[in-house]
């Protein structure tokens, strides 16, 4: 009795649960090391095939994405440009009359007022001082007056010239501004035109691609149709759909009947024709191959 009791008690192992927890911990640490400790990053793709795949989708996708933003950019750009030219010409027009007209008026008014004053002062002076030489004095005065008039005329001319120069400068500035505006407008127009051209080119390229794809799809279908040995006298217009997996080069990897026409004879005939038309015509540009990798071919019994 005592021996069996001893045995039973002794065989209860120490720390079984602790051992299990430790085992779990060891694995957690190992997994954590694997996941976080190592950088399992793929290297950039190598080889011809890879580069072609990565290049093709970008030019098709990018233009679609980038086209809207440029339009948005160009639209706001001309809008701010247009309002600018409108206020600018108004400013010079409003400026012209205000400073230009008052300036000459003041200049024109002041000299005539001064002239009589000078004349009046000069005239009484000679009368009081020298009486006998009146004629001489008169002549002198006349000469002086003439000189004064000449001087005034010269001044007037100078002022006029200055005004003319100012006006010319203003006109030049206006012209410059106008020219700058024109240049800006022209640049905007050129940008818009260039963008439009680009968009058109891209659209054309896309059209070309889609044309090419649809053309070769039609060619493939035609080739397959030409090889079908049509079973005679089927009722209605049964349609068989096949999904074909192609290899680069036109070889057929796999042909699966995705939708039966309901007539095994017709299905078999089409499947045989698909295999017979190997290699299928593919566009020479290998970049387009991904469009043909998984083909869905639908064949109608009657066209």
């Amino acid at each position: 009795m005592s021996v069996t009791a001893l045995r039973n008690s002794s065989y209860s192992e120490p720390r079984i649960l602790l051992a299990g927890v430790l085992a779990g911990l060891v694995h957690l640490v190992f997994i954590a090391l694997l996941i976080f400790g190592l950088n399992w990053k793929d290297h950039p793709p190598e080889g011809m095939m890879v580069e072609i795949w990565t290049e093709l989708p970008k030019p098709i996708q990018e233009p679609v994405k980038t086209q809207p933003p440029p339009k948005q950019q160009t639209k706001p750009a001309p809008e701010p440009l247009k309002p600018k030219p409108e206020p600018e010409p108004q400013k010079p027009e409003s400026v012209k009359p205000e400073p230009a007209k008052p300036a000459p008026r003041q200049a024109a008014v002041t000299p005539p007022v001064k002239k009589p004053d000078i004349a009046m002062q000069q005239k009484p002076e000679p009368i009081k001082e020298i009486k006998p030489d009146l004629e001489q004095q008169k002549k002198k005065e006349q000469e002086k007056l003439k000189e004064l008039e000449k001087q005034k005329e010269l001044e007037k001319k100078k002022e006029l010239e200055k005004q003319k120069e100012l006006e010319k400068q203003k006109e030049l500035e206006k012209q410059k501004e106008l020219a700058a505006q024109r240049q800006r407008e022209q640049a905007a127009k050129a940008q818009r035109e260039a963008e439009a051209q680009r968009a058109a080119q891209q659209a054309a390229a896309r059209n070309l691609v889609t044309n090419e794809i649809s053309k070769y799809k039609a060619l493939i279908l035609a080739k397959i149709r030409s090889r079908i040995v049509m079973p005679p006298d089927l009722p209605g217009n049964p349609i068989a759909e096949f999904s074909v997996t192609l290899l680069p080069g036109g070889d057929i990897l796999d042909v699966r009947l995705s939708k039966s026409s309901g007539h095994a004879v017709f299905d078999n005939a089409v499947e045989r024709a698909i295999f017979l038309s190997k290699p299928l015509p593919l566009p020479p540009d290998p970049a387009l191959f991904h469009e043909f990798r998984n083909l869905n071919i639908t064949v109608h019994y009657r066209e």
Binding site: E13, P14, R15, I16, L18, A19, G20, L22, A23, G24, V26, H27
Partner: peptide, 21 residues
């Protein structure tokens, strides 16, 4: 392999405690 590894580690620790004891 994960199961085997877990059990083997469990037994490793169990035996470690038993034998040390």
């Amino acid at each position: 392999l994960v199961l085997i590894s877990f059990f083997s580690w469990w037994f490793i620790f169990r035996k470690h405690f038993v034998i040390r004891n």
